[in-house]
Design a protein around this nucleic acid. Structure first.
Lengths: 162, 162
DNA sequence: CCATGGATGCAATCGATTTGCATCCATAAA
DNA sequence: TTTATGGATGCAAATCGATTGCATCCATGG
């Protein structure tokens, strides 16, 4: 759950956006500013890595609401472009709050041992994507990319590893 | 389900491996050569793109067996390194039979409209992967990468699209 | 203050996948 | 060929993440 690395600068991911700005965005699209919704946004603001619906629900504390409400709100926020959904391949959706104007496109390096997550700066060649699109006549091509490995803490003991 | 493109050569994916060779591999690891297992391998041999458990089950025809058996066998085959699991992000696992010695690492371009699949030749820079590993102290780093877009058939009508 | 449509709680449902268990059978050994 | 035996299968129940129907609630505009 926590970053295994504190020696290197990582990309943004600390949401500076004040809650009021977020709720304002909701208001502008005629979405109601409800207690559960604010609480969920607060939880998202506090987390710099993708978190699951269940984790969000657990982190609500006092402002507890139904788990279904969490699911519904994350769909709403996703539709509004306020959060981005990530898939770490374990069958559970994870979300990150987005900064204003950020489409959230980036990737992660996930530890298969302890689930530690590192945000990966930059993306890989968009050219390849466009080449692909052209070659196969596809349009609106995007991609999903996540890295997996063993973090220092979970590294196998003994001799050097591959 | 079918490739939208027949103008360009696509990477392998036509399993030449005879069934006997496959069953031999099973035998060598003291796995039993059962009817369901052979039938499942036959289905996999016939498909050049990743297919789901359900699709495999449906394609069994005469050699029908329980869906749970299909699930169990795909786990077994995956553990033995005979098939590779792919995740297109729709919550359904897909599998491809692997050639002898092939680790199956490659990617796909999937149509979000009709689910047509194109196998993507080559992989993207392994350097980036190693840089990442080094930078964050991770070991055994791999990645999952899939492309998504709209195939020619599903392309939106009208003016040029982005 | 009122009306109203979006939001929520709760329970039921869904789809993919897994699992417990009794039975079956492929395979190696006698 | 017969036997014993551990893996494999069928069937049903159970998990798990996620969705949804519905009655009620309440944030918001008028």
């Amino acid at each position: 759950m926590s970053s295994p690395c504190s020696r290197h600068p990582h990309p943004h991911r600390l949401i500076q956006q004040p809650l009021t700005e977020l709720t304002e965005k909701l208001r502008s699209k005629s979405r109601k500013i409800t207690a559960p919704r604010q609480a969920i946004l607060e939880v998202l603001r506090r987390h710099q890595h993708p978190i699951t619906n269940k984790e969000i629900h657990a982190a609500l504390g006092t402002a507890d609401c139904d788990l279904a409400t969490v699911y519904r709100n994350l769909h709403t926020l996703e539709d509004m472009g306020m959060v981005r959904r990530f898939d770490f391949g374990d069958g559970v959706a994870r979300f990150e709050l987005l900064e204003e104007g950020d489409d959230g496109h980036h990737h992660h390096l996930v530890c298969t041992g302890c689930s530690a997550v590192v945000e990966v700066e930059g993306c890989f060649p968009t050219e390849l994507e466009q080449t692909l699109a052209r070659r196969h006549g596809f349009t609106r091509v995007t991609h999903k990319l996540e890295f997996f490995g063993l973090c220092p803490k979970c590294a196998p003991v003994g001799p050097a590893s591959p």
